[in-house]
Design a binder for these strands. Structure first.
Lengths: 243, 243
DNA sequence: AATTGTCTGTCCGAAAGCGTACATAACTTT
DNA sequence: AAAGTTATGTACGCTTTCGGACAGACAATT
């Protein structure tokens, strides 16, 4: 029962009709996802997929100098490991837990078999993949056209959207690494945001004070991505399946 | 017969086993794709997909100021209109023919019905989509880390890979617009490349003189994307189905 | 031959971000 | 309490790119 309730914390699982979820139930394991956990590495076979509930996972690309840049994040709106059903034997990207929490783990065989039933889960997974792609593409053009302040606001908002709390445990150094810029730049931008009263800083913790202010400073990319994510789920189903 | 031969110019169609291709044959129309043709616009229902043979199509995102930035290109290695089978009612992106040529048009219903047979075409399309996503993500991090010269070399090489000829009809102004930078910057970079003897310029036409030189100047992103595209196709099948 | 439009090369000051470095503050360990 | 570690703020000169502008070269038209 408890399990049943928690399943719905992941939007994809929540949207499944009861019968579909029933089939997966025995194979879905609630697991803790500690910060830094490597969900999958590049060029390795993926054995499980993860449906985060409270955890946030970064999808990262490695550069020639070894640094890891974030291309997208996955929280309770999605699934980690799409290449499993998209037919990539292995991925270029890595997935690492950025914000500790929980999620449901499902072995690859079960996912594939459910995927090939061609039911609602398949439709959901394909639509999610398309949404993820849109998010990456939007981030691409955002990088080109918008200031670091705008980009950071977008990034923060996307994080907070996926977090139960309104404070984020991360250092400026880590943000800089994920975004592929220098820490000094993040420090400057983040200090500005604090000075304007939009956020609060506290040694490795960032909290929102004025969400609307943040949205106003962010570029339109945030709204575009968010709209896309909201469109992903057929609204009627979310509640129906939540109980 | 002629048709049969031309079908194989698109790698996805070429890879299909004869029986699958047979089913689609009557619905596949060879069409001319003139430069500037809008394959699909944003927020509109997609009615057809296109398998380019000699044409190159840009996938574009519109910015708030109305400019259109390229997030990826599709040539004979792919298909234009993935959101049709990925379940997006409409896309954020637009698709416009950048390099005139030909391609095969397939109506959405046929594609969907073949997709839902869950045969090789479905596998191919899903893998292609994953590859496209990888290409976008790689471009994202490339934008962040690499110089304009490296990026332009990558871009040129990706274009030439998809072209039958080794010369490209495009002005520096148009390149700048696609990449989201000023024309003056493209002019500078491109002049350098010409001075080094890597390319030849001629008022709206760019030709490669030294491909290896270009590859050497490009960042590793080019090789990564290219490897990914090559991996897409099961090699054995390409020849088998070409005749 | 003259005119007009397009494509290209270049220049300027301004802005954003890099690379590096250093200092302070806070927390942790001893 | 002292020492070490981590997180942060900030400063300096440098490079890349922006934004805007201008002029020359070529092409098409008349």
């Amino acid at each position: 029962m408890n399990t049943r309730h928690a399943l719905s914390q992941n939007h994809l699982l929540a949207t499944l009709p009861a019968e579909d979820r029933e089939r997966l139930l025995t194979d879905l394991e609630l697991v803790s996802m500690p910060r830094g956990q490597i969900i999958f590495d590049s060029d390795t076979q993926i054995r499980h997929v993860f449906f985060p509930t409270t955890a946030i996972v970064s999808l990262l690309y490695e550069m020639e100098d070894g640094s890891l840049l974030e291309v997208a994040m996955v929280g309770n709106e999605g699934i980690v490991g799409i290449s499993l059903f998209m037919g990539g034997e292995a991925t270029v990207s890595r997935a690492i837990v950025q914000s500790a929490g929980h999620g449901y783990r499902l072995n690859g065989r079960s996912l594939k078999s459910e995927f090939h039933r061609a039911g609602l889960l398949q439709r959901l997974l394909l639509r999610y993949t398309l949404t993820l792609m849109t998010e990456i593409a939007q981030t691409l053009v955002c990088n080109r056209c918008h200031s670091m302040e705008q980009q950071l606001c977008r990034w923060l908002l996307l994080r907070f959207d996926r977090l139960p709390a309104n404070s984020l445990l991360i250092t400026q150094e880590q943000i800089a690494r994920l975004l592929g810029v220098r820490r000094a730049l993040i420090s400057k931008v983040v200090s500005n945001l604090r000075a304007t009263g939009l956020i609060k800083l506290d040694r490795g913790r960032i909290a929102v004070l004025d969400r609307e202010g943040l949205e106003a400073k962010a570029c339109e990319c945030y709204a575009l991505i968010k709209d896309r994510l909201d469109l992903l789920l057929p609204k009627e189903n979310v509640h129906k399946s939540a109980q």
